[in-house]
């Protein structure tokens, strides 16, 4: 059995090795984009079942964003919603025989955490300006600047490690159990893996929203305390 911590290239494009996780990601992207395009091609005021499910998903994402930020969900909807959908589908792709979820390799969660890290910076600067964003590191006082800067890195790193660890461990356990008793025994673990995958997708999306909101709030001018 190959180690789940190892990624072997399927093929190379010039100097770049193309890993299986990248190919699976492309497949997930194709499924999501084609499905979305087919679904939204026939939108109507009286929704079909598929459209109702899609609208329920959008409304749920909007509600979560509104509850966390207290602001309009439109600027964050595409990023947060896509992160949730991609991680969910990627985690659940482990049900397909022979497919290793992209999130079970270190590169994909690291890429997702890097995107969240950059998004925090982007939305922080957009919300309070560059000065406001940088001043946010000096709150509650300038002594906290190093710790705040370290925290901005570590919290994204923790998201990466949490997602990778949970998904990888699930795949690893199923692989071990499957190698010992391949028939029917791994099924409860696979069901548990479905739950874990959904929970991890939700946690990653919500934490991303929380960190972005925190950066936006810190970048805004703070009201003066009354003495």
């Amino acid at each position: 059995m190959d180690s789940p911590l190892q990624s072997l290239p399927l093929f190379t494009v010039g100097p770049a090795p193309i890993m299986a996780s990248v190919v699976v990601t492309w497949a997930i992207m194709a499924v999501l984009v084609l499905g979305a395009a087919m679904l939204t091609r026939r939108l109507s005021q009286v929704p079909s079942k598929a459209q109702a499910v899609a609208e329920l998903l959008v409304a749920t994402v909007d509600s979560q964003i509104r509850n966390v930020t207290g602001a309009a969900p439109a600027p964050y909807r595409a990023l947060i919603g896509t992160l949730f959908l991609f991680i969910l589908i990627a985690n659940w792709s482990s049900l397909i025989p022979g497919v290793t979820p992209p999130t079970a390799t270190m590169e994909t969660p690291a890429a997702l955490a890097a995107i969240v890290f950059l998004s925090i910076i982007f939305f922080g600067i957009r919300g309070g300006g560059l000065g406001g964003f940088l001043r946010g590191f000096a709150r509650p006082n300038p002594v906290m600047i190093p710790l705040n800067m370290l925290e901005s890195i570590t919290r994204s790193f923790s998201m990466f490690v949490r997602l990778f660890g949970n998904v990888m461990s699930g795949v690893f356990v199923i692989a071990i159990v499957g190698s010992l008793a391949a028939l029917l025994v791994p099924i409860p673990l696979m069901v548990l893996d479905l739950l874990t995958g959904a929970v991890q997708a939700y946690i990653f999306a919500v934490l991303s929203m929380v960190f972005i909101t925190s950066a936006v709030e810190k970048g805004r001018p703070q009201p003066k305390k009354e003495s």
């Binding site: 100097p15 939108l43 595409a78 270190m106």
Partner: peptide, 30 residues
């Protein structure tokens, strides 16, 4: 344990492209 920077870059670009595509074809129309 291996960590391939190329794959990191590919996956980052893939996710960003997916964000844009879904924004264009899913989130905005719905």
């Amino acid at each position: 344990m291996t960590f391939d920077p190329w794959t990191l870059g590919f996956q980052a670009v893939n996710v960003l492209v997916l964000v844009w595509l879904l924004h264009r074809f899913f989130w905005k129309p719905v």
